[in-house]
Amino acid sequence: MRLTFAVLLLFASTALGQTAPVVNFAVPGASQGTEIVVSKATCGDTRTVTWSRTGTLPCSSLVFWLSSDSNCSGDPGDGDLVLDSEEVPQNNTTTLSGTLELKMSDALAATPNLSCDTQATNKSYRVCASTKKQDSLLACDDTASGVGTPTIVFTLDPVAPLAPAVPTVTGLDSALSVSVTVPGDTSQMKVQVVELVQSGDDGGTPTAGAEKVSKVQTTDNTVFRMEGLENGKLYGVFAYAIDKAGNQSDPSTLATGEPIPSNGFYAAYREAGGQETGGCGAGGGGLALGAVVAALGFWMMSRRKLS
């Protein structure tokens, strides 16, 4: 009886030493959060996901793969891509982290007749890590379970956003203010200012010429200030939408705008005869007063109150 108890205790202590495996994924840079999106142009490029793990692998190896149906349980099936080079053998205790190298072209190739060129719609894969786990009685499960977290999605987006509506252009001093409307599936907007070329001698409709200046902003700022332009000259303006994958839309309809000189308050003041020419006054004494104010303020606040 005492021997049985001792044996049970021994097994229990072993079980206590076993912890369930967990794999933590991270996307280096993480500019796109837990979603990695590639375009048709970057379909063959390598994207990386780092991983680290805790726990033990008492029942089977740890397998990394791309699941085409977002399900990380069970064994990889048709259309899934197993990342053999990163597999961690059963009972391994030394390989605790690594880097997965993902190529959308390889993932598509796992399915017959799929390729970067033929895929015309969005296609997503989930990054999986799976292994067979032990139950509470130390028996191994029959099927593997997904142990990766958080959910990382690897997506091919071959479709560019729709072209934006024609932007609203307002003339500023040596600049143009361009207000754009953001279409769906867009993460960035681009505005391009171009020279206008007069077609023919009859003063016909001008067409877009060489680019003068362009700027890209995220969609939370839909007003672009395009600087470095010549007052009194008519420019053409295009807007483009760019999605997470980097696909750029067709240009919007051409808008036009002309920078206009304007006077701020100081120009109006000088024009009226005002004699202020700036400067700190009285030999830069402002710096001295500023320093005195700062010092006194510090002194006042730092002196400990008597109690």
């Binding site: 500023l172 001093d173 600049a175 200030r225 304007s262 006077n263 701020g264 308050f265 100081y266 120009a267 000088r270 202020e276 020419t277 700036g278 400067g279 700190c280 006054g281 402002g286």
Partner: peptide, 17 residues
């Protein structure tokens, strides 16, 4: 300021004390 920058008139920056 004018626009996004300090105003400059005839080469004189509009700032002082």
């Amino acid at each position: 300021t004018k626009g996004t920058d300090d105003e400059v008139v005839d080469g004189i920056p509009a700032k002082g004390g």
